[in-house]
């Protein structure tokens, strides 16, 4: 047989020990992406061209180029400009920045989905711009984007193996190290795949549930003549 169950079981604990760092990179990267995405979205749809144009260009550039090369740039090139970061910090920033460009699009579609009438009603009630954004527009644009954001959280989780390229010892690197010690790659890499599946599948299922739930709430609200 190709597959050795005893060996497979013996490496599980070591693989499990790599999960916290994988999850930490995912979550920290996600929080960063959420925080950066909102101002990016606002800047992109700003009336001020000197603001919207460069932000749009930079976001497009980050979105259309591979994360791995961006990571190399931050990790290897930035120190020559005096910016030195650990692999973990670099990974979180790289991941967060890369996906902030995706989340900006999500926010933007959320904002654009707020009906014109809401803006007009706010104007008619003489709300200030800040009040309109904070109390009227954002509260309505965020809920429908939650499932999409959940999806990106899962996407980012599955992107963490890329961080192995800058020596971060996450799940994939751990598996590779295990494999190179015993020259048995099948068990280690298969287990990593299974671990990813075990963690991402229930989350994806939850997101789908949430989507259905929000869709239903949306329809109920609509039928009450919102």
């Amino acid at each position: 047989m190709w597959w050795d169950w005893n060996y497979a079981w013996s490496i599980v604990p070591e693989l499990l020990r790599a999960i916290p760092i994988t999850l930490a990179a995912t979550l920290e990267g996600f929080v960063l992406a959420c925080l950066l995405g909102l101002p990016m979205a606002l800047a992109k749809r700003s009336q001020l061209r000197w603001l919207s144009w460069p932000v749009t260009a930079i976001a497009e550039f980050i979105r259309c180029t591979p994360l791995i090369i961006q990571l190399f740039f931050y990790y290897y090139a930035l120190p020559s400009f005096g910016i030195v970061m650990s692999a973990m910090t670099t990974g979180v920033i790289g991941l967060g920045l890369h996906y902030s460009t995706y989340l900006a699009e999500v926010y933007r579609s959320g904002i654009d989905s707020v009906p014109r009438g809401q803006w007009e009603a706010s104007r008619a009630l003489n709300f200030s711009r800040g009040h309109t954004w904070l109390r009227i527009v954002l509260p309505q644009s965020v809920p429908p984007t939650i499932p999409v954001m959940g999806n990106y959280l899962i996407v980012m989780f599955k992107e963490t193996p890329t961080l192995s390229a800058i020596t971060l010892v996450e799940l994939l690197t751990t598996a590779k190290n295990i494999g190179s010690q015993s020259f048995r790659y099948l068990e280690a890499f298969t287990l990593v795949g299974i671990l990813f599946l075990i963690m991402s599948y229930p989350s994806a299922w939850l997101v789908r549930k949430l989507e259905v739930h929000l869709g239903r709430r949306e329809r109920r609200a609509a039928s009450h003549g919102r």
Binding site: P161, L172, G193, F196, L197
Partner: peptide, 8 residues
């Protein structure tokens, strides 16, 4: 879709 491209 549930595992990662690099893992694959």
């Amino acid at each position: 879709r549930g595992t990662s491209l690099l893992v694959q």
